[in-house]
């Protein structure tokens, strides 16, 4: 068992501003839905209903919800393989997401992609990319298209701390900044790239400093605090929307579960995970809402029951889905078939 010092907890800013009950209910409801949905997905994985790779974002729900709350329907989202939370927060029907995890034809990507490749172009959700940092150049291109058409929208691009080591991160930040493109780069820094801790893969562990080399304004925020994250994303998104060029927002968070379902977690201690769980974004938000008299415990319990019910309905939808016929195997490789092979 590797015993290394736990990474420093981010400094928690004081509660940033007030929140109304409707927003609180919406955000907490979404965070609970992501949590319950993914807990169920883990169970279904053990039951063999979901196969392949399954990456859970449990512990990171505040970032998904806060980030997407700042976007409009016209904005684009580019995501990673750890994207159930992004998809649900974007409003993809939970049934379509669960059916995709099953690989059923009623899944968001007709079952072709599975957990890592959830797409919904109608919601401008440009997917689940399982090549680390592979989404960043696409986000630059989507923003370039919006600039050229022109179309008033920004592109939000999620990626992990691990992606920062790839050339594509650096090339994309530079390009977006050089061309002043409306890209909101959202780094979900959960302090690990698979089993490699941030301080073992980055010479400079303050990711928010990296924007400076490309003249991309950057800020780091406590990603366990949904309100702090939401106000940081709102400010960043406004700046990008104003035409000032890209922005890099580093959200410091933590995954409570293994990297994927295959991971024996040899690289971090239980104590470290427990320490972070004390800053569970759902528990923190809940306590703040209850403490501030914004939502009563009973209302919160009702939200949780609803999250479980929606999850159960999503499972039922997936169970009821059909398998795509084998005869359709070659469908959608091209827009049209040509007579020659």
């Amino acid at each position: 068992m590797a015993t290394r010092e736990a990474p420093p907890l981010p400094k928690t800013p004081a509660a940033s501003g007030a929140i109304d009950a409707a927003t609180a209910r919406s955000w907490l409801g979404q965070m609970l839905l992501i949590r319950r949905f993914e807990e169920k997905a883990a169970e279904l994985y053990s039951a063999g209903k979901i196969r392949g790779f399954l990456h859970l974002s449990i512990g990171e729900e505040a970032v998904s919800v806060a980030a997407i709350a700042a976007l409009t329907e016209a904005d684009n989202i580019v995501s990673t393989y750890r994207e159930h939370g992004h998809a649900l927060a974007r409003g993809l029907p939970p049934g379509a997401v669960m059916a995709e995890l099953y690989g059923k034809a009623n899944g968001a990507s007709r079952g072709r992609g599975g957990s890592m490749h959830i797409f919904d172009v109608g919601r401008r959700f440009y997917g689940g990319n399982a090549i680390v940092a592979g989404g960043l150049p696409l986000a630059v291109g989507l923003a370039l298209a919006d600039r050229l058409r022109p179309r008033p929208a920004i592109t939000a691009c999620f990626f992990g701390d691990g992606a920062v080591a790839e050339g594509e991160f650096h090339e994309s930040l530079n390009l977006a900044s050089l061309w002043k493109l409306p890209v909101l780069f959202l780094c979900e820094n959960n302090y690990y790239a698979m089993g490699t801790a941030l301080d073992r893969h980055q010479a400079e562990t303050d990711i928010s400093l990296k924007g400076g080399a490309y003249r991309v304004p950057s800020v780091a925020v406590d990603g366990m605090d949904v309100m702090a994250t939401a106000s940081a994303v709102r400010a960043a998104a406004e700046q990008v929307r104003s035409g000032a060029g890209p922005f890099l927002l580093e959200c410091r968070t933590y995954r409570f579960r293994a990297h994927s379902m295959y991971d024996p977690e040899l690289y971090r201690s239980k104590e470290e995970v427990e320490q972070w769980k004390r800053r569970d974004p759902i528990a923190l938000f809940r306590a703040r809402l209850e403490g501030g008299g914004i939502l009563a415990a009973a209302a919160i319990e009702a939200l949780d029951r609803e999250a479980r019910a929606v999850t159960d309905q999503a499972v039922a939808f997936a169970e009821a889905g059909e398998w795509e016929p084998v005869a359709d195997l070659l469908k959608d490789v091209y827009a049209r078939e040509l007579p020659c092979g």
């Binding site: 059923k104 490749h117 084998v326 070659l330």
Partner: peptide, 16 residues
């Protein structure tokens, strides 16, 4: 292999 990016569901992957 069938000339398709490998799909996720088992029955399609096996066929590919």
């Amino acid at each position: 292999s069938a000339e398709v990016p490998i799909p996720y569901p088992k029955h399609l992957e096996d066929t590919a």
